[in-house]
Design a protein around this nucleic acid. Sequence first.
DNA 1: TCGACGATCGTTTTT
DNA 2: CGATCGTCGA
Length: 748
Amino acid sequence: MNLNHLNLQQREAVQNINGPMMILAGAGSGKTRTLVSRISYLLEEKNISPFQLLALTFSNKAAKEMRDRIGREVSCDVGALQITTFHAFCAKMLRTEAQYLGLSKSFTIYDGSESKAVVKTILQRRGISQKDVSPFEVLYFIEDLKNHGHYPDRNMEGKDYTVDTADMFFDMYLDYERELHKANALDFGGLITAVIQLFEKFPDVLLRYQERFHYLLVDEYQDTNRAQFDLVTKLAQIKRNICVVGDEDQSIYSWRGADIRNILDFEEVYNDARILKLEQNYRSSKNIIEAAGAVISRNTQRKGKDMWTDNPEGESIEIVECHSDKEEAEFVATQIRELSKDKHPYDEMAVFYRTNSQSRLIEDALRKANIPYRVVGGIKFYERKEIKDLLAYVRIVVNDKDSLAISRIINVPARGIGATSLRKIEDEAVKTESTMWEVLQNIVDNPEEYKHIRLTTRVKSSLSHFVQFIHDAKVAMNKGDSPSDIYEKLLHESGYYEMLRASKDYESMARIENLEELGNAISQFEEANPKLGLLEFMETITLDTSVKGEEGEEDSGEVSLMTIHGAKGLEFFYVFVTGTEENVFPSYRSLESGEEAIEEERRLFYVAMTRAMKILYITFSQGRMLFGQLKFNGPSRFISEIPNKYYRWKKIGGGYQDRSSNFDSDDDSKWDNFSDPIYDEPVYRVESSPSKKPESKYQKGLRIVHGLYGEGKILDCEGPKGDERVTIQFKDGAKKKFMAKFAPLTVL
DNA sequence: TCGACGATCGTTTTT
DNA sequence: CGATCGTCGA
């Protein structure tokens, strides 16, 4: 096998197949190429059976790419190769081993919104108002436990994680787990912890898998959480051929439980581990790589890599300062136009932002400029209400214990079964320890015995119809009707289609189209997998949330818009990083929560920078509408962390001095709302008081004039010289806070 | 049961 | 600003 296309380190990563190894693969270092070669090498040179390999990734996209590329390189049967996501791997194993854990093979997988719904019902049942305890908080607590590999009776000794069983939330967690078990369901985290449980309670099962997988590979290792680490460690225990690949500088999911310690402590866990660094970047210009390197070097939580490149120096980074968010978007559009005039195709360009809500203005500007674009991410197809509704019907048919699905659609479309009736049915289910489906069946089949559930005749007759058509669909499924036939049946007999057709508004029409699209998806699935049924279809879509795939999305001739999180793993010739302002990027939340969070934001910034191959534009705006208010946040600290020599700074429109007049002529209605920043607390606490600060020109008590508010007095001033935040009391009594260098202030 | 209306409160989201 | 949620009245 020819490995000449690889550099020295890459080759070592390929050929060093035995024992634990961690590959620290920097951005653009040819990671996928290396991994693909490694697997090919194992298969072709070392004659390892595909059956004995396991490669775990985080996204379906990554798994698919790797599989495709290996398929092209290798002649042996790739079909048996396990290259899959953590979650899909676990789901598959749990379906085969379901009986051990008292699950049925047909368990459903709950996504985040369904988990949240379960938490809500638990809170309700306990009579806790959502105002007092937000379901989100509870869910976060539960996820945190699961991220650390906890399951209800797990002994966490020696796990470096303490569980407070006295916490009221812990009780709710137990409730939650019971609820899911009753529904024959698992959430995302539960897929992982259930496998850990399986391994710990049934060592013989574990042994089977340990002996099967001779070679383990974990991609995006920096994003693993403790549970996943546990799982992999267990699997690798006997053969010890575990290769993990990651980049601590691209760890941007710690808020989702990714534990950077998995990387930082790898050598402690495997003391004979080999550590390899892939530090040559093949993607970006020298300017970009060195600038990004300078920024990330400020982080303390790293193993430390020094990326370098043989690529040419390239263009300077463009830092672009705009007046308003609108103007920023217009700049992006104009610049894209320019690039396009120079014959650069649109699909080589991407616009990044920190939060999804920022896409709106960019979209407006691009649309106005007639630039084709697509928004990557955002509202996903399978998260749309109508899709979730129909899928809830499907879920009931597949797994009638799924009471959550029943509650979701029992009155959609309206059947006159309101909250009160639903409550009665749920109560009965809890009381008799049965599922809602059983209760419904009983009410319909033995109305006499169930008279104590006081339901109106109208409700009873609706229920009867509901039970009947679900039952029919189940029968159809069992006798082998095709998934798409069953889907059509549900769509029409539920009355859902009719409900949408009846209301003729634009929105309903779009929904009908989506439901037809769902039908197509099912038909396609059916054709591709004739042996599989609705259950498997459901699993694919809950575990693969990729956006409704239009064919040929690769070279679409469109500019890509996405959050930076969504951009990880991608590359573009021309990249715009927008909204690079304090409180936006880094986000105000991270600023509030301290240095670790800021380091993660810095990694995010690093990821953004290193997506660019040729030209990197970093834009920010002096003023920005946030939560309906105009804010002056000032440029992001990350901009100041880029050494001067790598960038050119460009101001769009006028300078600071004539700002207020510019503002006035810009868009009057908008600036009418001009008001103080909402983040009144000092966000800069962290670095606000070095021992000797140079004298600020904004002293307390000083009288000033503000371009818009008029005359006032400085009440307080904090922050270093040149970067002060001043609190000013105006003549009308209003107190407002500004960043001095951006506010139109004149000292009197 | 269901809609309308006002209060509230805002990241990121591979699975 | 805008989505989401809870309350209230018909």
